[in-house]
């Protein structure tokens, strides 16, 4: 991991006083601190101002012996036309690389492009403004998925898995007697997630309770994002939506609880402490 860099407090205060934003001041102060530490380590740094850059370029050109090309760094397009295909001659290119690296004309071995080479790469291209995709997204505080998120997910997975394993070790899934279409059991209930519907059946016509009403609810649920035009996601701004949804959940929850625990033989009302729990998962 990279070591912590202490921003240059002096530069930071000065930039803040000049009215720069906190973010820019912090970045520049950090850069100043890095530069200072590099210089302290004896590193040669690249040119800092345009005059300096120009001077370094001239000297690098002289060193490379390719002084014939009189182009400015700021106007590469002029030479591009003259050279054809927008390419720089290798000497000029090497000179520019050396100048920007600020090491007085000698090329580091790692740069790898010999001065005599006739092969050059186009590192830059002109992009028309129309070709740039405008992305308007805010900078967000993000972290790497590995290891941060994957670790959390792994722990959640282990926890849920072991919970289920422990439950499965101690609680056996029910298995009744063989299915017999002739023998209607006294307590006859759907799985718990359909108990809300079954409970509704006790009050309404089956066509309403069993099909139409759930159908309407499903359509409403799917339509929610298109109906709810409120752009805010803050709870304090969407009291109506939250209240409606809470009522919806509470309504079904209540029906499921009544149907599951408070109905006994013949689907009549039954207190579980009187007639026992007529409920199987």
């Amino acid at each position: 991991m990279s070591e912590e860099i202490t921003p240059d407090q002096e530069v930071y205060d000065r930039l803040l006083a000049e009215g720069k934003s906190e973010r820019i001041a912090r970045a520049k102060a950090k850069a100043a601190a890095v530069r200072a530490s590099k210089i302290a380590e004896g590193a040669t740094l690249g040119p800092k101002s345009s005059e300096e850059a120009q001077k370094a370029l001239e000297s690098a050109r002289a060193a490379a012996g390719g002084g014939g090309v009189a182009t400015k760094t700021a106007a590469p397009a002029e030479s591009a036309g003259a050279q054809g295909g927008g390419r720089l001659p290798p000497e000029e290119r090497a000179a520019r690389v050396a100048a920007s690296l600020g090491n007085g004309g000698k090329q580091p071995a790692s740069m790898g492009v010999p001065t005599s080479s006739t092969h050059t790469h186009r590192l830059l291209a002109l992009v028309p403004p129309a070709g740039i995709q405008q992305v308007q997204s805010k900078q967000m505080d993000k972290v790497y998925t590995w290891p941060h998120l994957l670790l959390v997910e792994f722990v959640a997975l282990l926890a849920a898995g072991s919970l289920l394993l422990i439950a499965s070790f101690f609680l056996d899934a029910p298995l009744g007697s063989l299915a017999n279409p002739q023998e209607v059991p006294a307590i006859n209930k759907a799985p718990w997630y359909f108990m809300g519907l079954q409970e509704l059946l006790a009050y309404l016509h089956p066509m309403v309770a069993g099909v139409s009403l759930p159908g309407v609810f499903v359509v409403l649920l799917m339509a929610a994002p298109y109906v709810d035009k409120n752009p805010s996601a803050k709870p304090e701004n969407r009291k109506l939506a939250n209240m409606a949804f809470t009522f919806f959940l509470a309504f079904w929850g209540l029906l499921v609880v009544i149907g599951s625990f408070l109905r006994g033989a013949g689907y009549a009302w039954a207190w579980p402490w009187v007639q026992g729990l007529g409920f199987t998962l």
């Binding site: 029910p174 298995l175 009744g176 007697s177 063989l178 299915a179 017999n180 279409p181 023998e183 209607v184 059991p185 006859n188 209930k189 759907a190 799985p191 359909f194 079954q198 199987t280």
Partner: peptide, 12 residues
């Protein structure tokens, strides 16, 4: 295919 299954599914 026990009683529980048959009759729960019948209701549904």
């Amino acid at each position: 295919w026990d009683q529980l299954a048959l009759w729960a599914v019948t209701v549904g």
